[in-house]
Design a protein around this nucleic acid. Structure first.
Lengths: 342, 342
DNA sequence: CTGTTAGCGCGTTCAC
DNA sequence: GTGAACGCGCTAACAG
């Protein structure tokens, strides 16, 4: 089965290849009649233009790329939908790539840019610190969503945009809320991450809140989950270990809702009532927080707004209507049924 | 910023382009010294080969594609991880594409195949009935995961493989289990789908089980969620409507775990105890089923085995060691805390 | 071991 | 309005 190419279509229609090309790409300079004839043959033969060849030649491809770190992470699902909608509205093409945990997302972007004709890139998740040089190499506007600007050094602030909540501040807010309820021994479920990331910011918010309110930091209450903060199992296992360690605590603050749901289950299994015996708080404001039993107190990130704003910003930079910006959205502390006064 | 190409690298190294190509692609016939020199220049210049051009020429690209219908669906996350591992082990490249609900996955595959040099395709989710002709057009081995063979007509059985559970049978099993617990008025949360899909099979299993046990089908107990069966909100809203309708029922069977979690929440809000007042059963055996409160009784699909077997099969067909097969895995009825005898 | 060269399939001039 | 010819960046023959 030799692949059918544009030449073959041209031959069958008795026209030149360029005419076929014009028909495919909706060019204006073409006789409607010939176009119709060509399109008929194309449909009939099931011909599909080779995208690689097109990318090689095309100069005007309007394409946006979204690079998602950990696409299996449900957190990004609603954001991606917003991106799809925005991109479609503007008649751009969209390519979604997921980036492995061990890959450098900017490297992947670099590669992708060679392959497609990208006009803009939006990153979701991933590490926070990238060399400005590398980002500059991308040559197209770049927006980081859900990653704040506070980790960027001043030099690189103008090389890319960020749209996010202030993870440190919001995390601080949540812990302060727990403290306000009278909790003094607040455990935290976090991840032992060595790279600068939102995880570290959230931990810092926790530490600062304790400090501000004169509570001492007990290392035994800082619990590191095994690698991934978006699995129920990790929240469950870590909480179980915490309980069994005999350490005293009256609240658990989890840096993701998914971890918190695992924590709820572990507490329930141990016969510990939430919120009467122990309060549980999450972070992210994912859909699950609203539907678990009890409903989770969580720090809701305005995901839709973040992605919407991220796209607006990206397009306005593409259209040279704006320079790079660093936008911070406020998070919302949603009080559920999982926390109460002590 | 003119893009830097292989010619430029060759010029800077004072060698021919093919030598550079050989260096990049780890060919054997090359002097280690020259290779080292070339690689150094490549690193220095930040040169990245253009993938489109490569795809255009390459004859041997070992690449597998996974097309996922609704990649935002957490159901496929663990399966994709298995695929990644298997593909990597065999030194193939992997391209993951997610397919919109309104797109035809086979069409997308057709397009992708023109662009990349695919050696095999694995589909996850999506509609069940595809014309054998179209699949044949793909020219490479195709495996459908999580979609059964029962919807394929005999003619096309040899054109592709399927690896799945028998959705109708397993669904039947679950409903029979509920009936065995003494339930007579069993509501079902399903999706009003017009295309042949697992959804219809699960509904059929429900209907058949009722019939077999002499229970009459009450249309009022068949509830259709609004479009998507993998959102908590839909399970919640539909269950809420069911409760408020005043219809009597003692069990709810949800055709996905995600719907079931939403149902749990709605019942809890209405002051209905699970499982004492109403039993709830899910389907899929996702991680959440094990961590919600109460734990969900569900029909667990062996997702890891399905994807592992799917990949094994795909590769053995690629290597001509096997023809197309239709493999059915047994599901496992996992009894949680959400169902009890009436 | 290395350089030269011919296309891969297509979009884009530039003549007609 | 249309066709011929060129070349995008690269790999794979082939010749040295």
């Amino acid at each position: 089965m030799s692949e059918i190419t544009i030449v073959e279509i041209a031959r069958r229609c008795g026209v030149g290849v360029s005419t076929v090309s014009r028909a495919i790409n909706n060019h204006s300079d073409i006789n409607p009649e010939t176009k119709k004839r060509i399109m008929a043959v194309i449909k009939e033969t099931g011909y599909i233009p080779n995208n690689s060849a097109r990318n090689l030649k095309r100069t005007d491809a309007k394409c946006i790329a979204v690079l998602v770190k950990g696409i299996t992470n449900p957190f990004f699902a609603p954001m991606i939908e917003v991106v799809e909608k925005e991109v479609e509205e503007r008649k751009y093409a969209l390519v979604i790539r997921h980036v492995e945990a061990y890959e450098d997302e900017v490297d992947v972007a670099l590669e992708l840019e060679k392959e497609k004709r990208l006009r803009g890139i939006i990153f979701m998740g991933g590490s926070a610190r990238h060399s400005a040089d590398k980002i500059k190499q991308l040559n197209v506007p770049v927006v980081f969503a859900t990653i704040g600007s506070d980790i960027a050094d001043d030099l690189s602030r103008n090389e890319y945009s960020t749209v996010s909540v202030d993870d440190e501040k919001e995390s601080f807010k949540m812990v302060e809320y727990l403290i306000g309820l009278g909790h003094k021994r607040i455990a935290i479920l976090t991840e032992g991450s060595d790279t600068p990331s939102i995880v570290q910011l959230r931990l810092k918010g926790y530490l600062d809140a304790l400090k501000k309110h004169g509570l001492e930091v007990d290392e035994n209450l800082i619990r590191y989950v095994d690698r991934r903060i978006y699995t129920f199992g990790n929240g469950y296992a870590t909480t179980k270990a915490l309980i069994e360690s005999g350490e005293k605590f009256t609240a658990i603050y989890c840096i993701s809702d998914v971890l918190a749901v695992g924590a709820l289950r572990a507490l329930s299994d141990a016969g510990i009532n939430v919120p009467n015996d122990v309060s549980v708080a999450g972070y992210d404001g994912q859909e699950i927080a609203e539907y678990c039993v009890p409903r989770l107190t969580t720090l809701k990130q305005p995901m839709m707004e973040i992605s919407k704003k991220g796209m607006d910003l990206l397009f306005s930079i593409i259209d040279k209507e704006s320079g790079h910006k660093h936008i911070v959205f406020p998070g919302e502390l949603v009080v559920g049924e999982s926390t109460r006064e002590i």
